[in-house]
Amino acid sequence: MVTQQIARPAAINTEHLLEPQWAEVTSITKEINDVSTYWLKFTDPAIQKAYTFEPGQFNMLYMPGFGESAISICSDSNDHSKIGHSVRFVGNVTNAIGRLKVGDVIGLRGPFGTYWPMKELEGKDVFISCGGIGLPPLRPAIYHILHNREKYGKVTLLYGARTPADLMYTNEFDDWRKANIDVQVTVDRGDSSWTGRVGVVPMWFYQFRFDSRKTAVLTCGPEIMIHFVIYEALARRIPLESIFVSMERNMKCGQGSCGHCQLGPYFICKDGPVFRFDAIQPFFNVEEF
């Protein structure tokens, strides 16, 4: 088995990894029906100043009385004034977060996990293929590319959602396109008012021409979608080592102690969530894993 070599920075409180720091909700952006972005700022300015993260990492958000939830960071890693998390309201913790108002405080610890290898991707074409709530963990990578556009070749975003109303960050697509990112969108089902693509993300690969020697694929979304995205990428001779996947599991501790997010020999919270595909291939889409 190939061992993955993706580095990760330490969490903000390396001595007390389980101790959250308080952060204030500075604004809330409603993205789609059940997803809002919470913009946070540490109440301690020194912590805010010291806090850095890499695209693809996540934080543990803590709601007293409810518990913690692992939420990807969706903001610009160059902007040290605020930290964004797009939260989908699906369980106790995230529904409690959904009741927060501007000015409320929340516990935050992190950042945790591996990240998209943006340095390694320099000079390459980057094909980002994601679906649904899989776009937020990739948005910081897109921002990174925007800030360093000249360092990357052809950049394509193929993004899918269930319906047009489920598409996130649509107000930013024009800016991304202006920076020469080919933004292609599809939905699983549409009505007559939708003039874009209808069909699932992996099926649109045939529309793109890849130089397999210099293309890297970054993917995040439902695991079944990722499975077929990888299938299509491999069919176009993209090497295993050029495919990067952000995996989703039930993360609890964020430091590889509790075992809730284990995938084969890996803990997604500690060894992931971003994996080079050759590392996880033996366990990917295998029943019981």
Partner: peptide
């Protein structure tokens, strides 16, 4: 075959809400 796969994936409703609270 390709249409059958699209139909299967659409039937699976890939983007349905997850039951548990996961990262993302």
């Amino acid at each position: 075959a390709s249409r059958l796969l699209v139909t299967r994936l659409q039937l699976l409703d890939m983007f349905a809400h997850p039951e548990s609270q996961n990262a993302k």
